[in-house]
Design a protein around this nucleic acid. Structure first.
Lengths: 248, 248
DNA sequence: ATGATACTAAACATCAGATGTTTCAATTGT
DNA sequence: ACAATTGAAACATCTGATGTTTAGTATCAT
């Protein structure tokens, strides 16, 4: 396992994840990255032990993690195979992260953004109707952070926090489970645009509009403002992917 | 483990799930059902082994499954604790299923339906724009099945298949990952309404409307029709939960 | 008393290897 | 050809030993 051992955003600084987690990530990335195709058998437990230099327990736990995420299917006697893509838990944070770490495929990012365009405006509307004072404060705090950010990273993180705060304020647990989609989409945009300073702070007024509508408990306005904001984001994404393919 | 061993919808008929899966389900249901509270430590590995009558490997694999679903967090030395509800993967099929198997809490069902109301109309619109011939055939087949269903179960299953087919026809992978939400919501409605025969086939004309719009590639009409259908569903749910609380 | 240090028990992490069960395919007998 | 048998491959489970981390407790110097 010496070749393994990389860290992830989720790891608390300096704390190494367990071997099982590491093996899981390695396998997960390979599957998501298409190194092993859908429907194909993966190496058997012994081979995996050998390859990663770990014991069978570790491999089994790693495989179980991937089963829980819908990526693998194990069958006694016949082996363990990659499930078809449609069965993957694409909304799982890890699975999303693996996607972005191996494949900044524009099509996928686009689909991610399309989905955001569907549910975030509704979230904003619901937030306008049902947000508590604390929840509005959380949104406002993120907004301020964006305005005061000096480094581009701070700005992007504040951006993500803003959207998450809106999602939370909608007070719908199921919707809240889509938090990961926002962060992933955000991160991928960053990667694509390479945090282009030209875009810096461009979306602040639009965020402001969303916040104001929620504060005023105006659901329609909140929905419209969020929709407008995301459309802008999407146009920029389209712009960048166009540049990308042109450059090549 | 003798007391364990129950089957689930996902199990192929007659095939017993592995012990790890059984333990995972048992623990999952208890957590989701609130038997162990958020933030609380669960029994340690040895206790769990004793309680379920299985070996440590089995317990560890079960726990790993739950970690992957965001329900548990294990820390070396200190123990394994239940994560706060906000961290649970509420969109995971199993987690959803456990919710419904232990707690037909109307609030949750309502939230589930709210989310469906957000993304299914869009799915219908996208389907109108991008569905292939095969995908439309799949929708049509489900529609026919609903019309021809004689048993109430067949009707409900066909209903779910219809919605799934629309979701698939939208050709957005991320959206498709929400398939589980549809089935769960459907199942919960059944449980609540106890498959009331009065409601039988009531929604066929609305489904027909959605199908026709998709066939005609009319995105706006498809979106509107799906929205109308789901609003009806929601009203019925509200009706039943009102009856429920009144009855008590 | 107080603060820092050292010890210890609890709990998870990993390993090794034995044994059972299921599946699939090859073999064999007709 | 066809059907039944057999055996290898692969996962499932168990056992028990040993390592590591954490949190709390006891101890000791000041």
């Amino acid at each position: 396992m010496s070749e393994l051992l990389y860290y992830d955003l989720k790891d608390v600084a300096g704390v190494a994840p367990s071997l099982a987690t590491q093996v899981c990530r390695e396998l997960g990335r390979r599957i998501v990255g298409g190194v092993v195709r859908e429907g194909a058998l993966i190496d058997d437990e012994n081979k995996l032990c050998e390859r990663f230099g770990v014991s069978k327990s570790v491999v089994r736990e790693a495989v179980k993690l991937l089963v829980a995420k819908g990526l693998l299917e194990v069958r006694r006697g016949s082996g363990t195979r990659v499930r078809r893509r449609a069965s993957w838990s694409l909304l799982d944070d890890d699975v999303l992260a693996w996607h972005l770490s191996v494949e900044p495929r524009p099509g996928f990012l686009n689909q991610l953004l399309e989905v955001r365009q569907v549910f975030e405006p509704s979230a904003a509307a619901w937030a306008a109707k049902s947000a508590t004072k604390d929840q509005i404060d959380e949104i406002r705090a993120a907004q301020r952070k964006m305005e005061n950010a000096e480094e581009i990273q701070d700005y992007v993180v504040a951006d993500a926090l803003f959207h998450r705060a809106v999602l939370r304020a909608a007070n719908n647990e199921v919707l809240m489970a889509m938090e990961g989609v926002i962060f992933s989409a955000l991160l991928s945009s960053i990667r694509l645009t390479n945090a282009d300073p030209r875009d810096n702070k461009r979306s602040i007024p639009l965020h402001q509009k969303v916040l104001a509508a929620i504060e005023a408990q105006d659901a329609d306005a909140a929905e419209a403002a969020m929709k407008e904001h995301l459309e802008g984001t999407r146009e920029r994404l389209a712009q960048f992917t166009a540049d990308e393919s042109e450059g090549k």
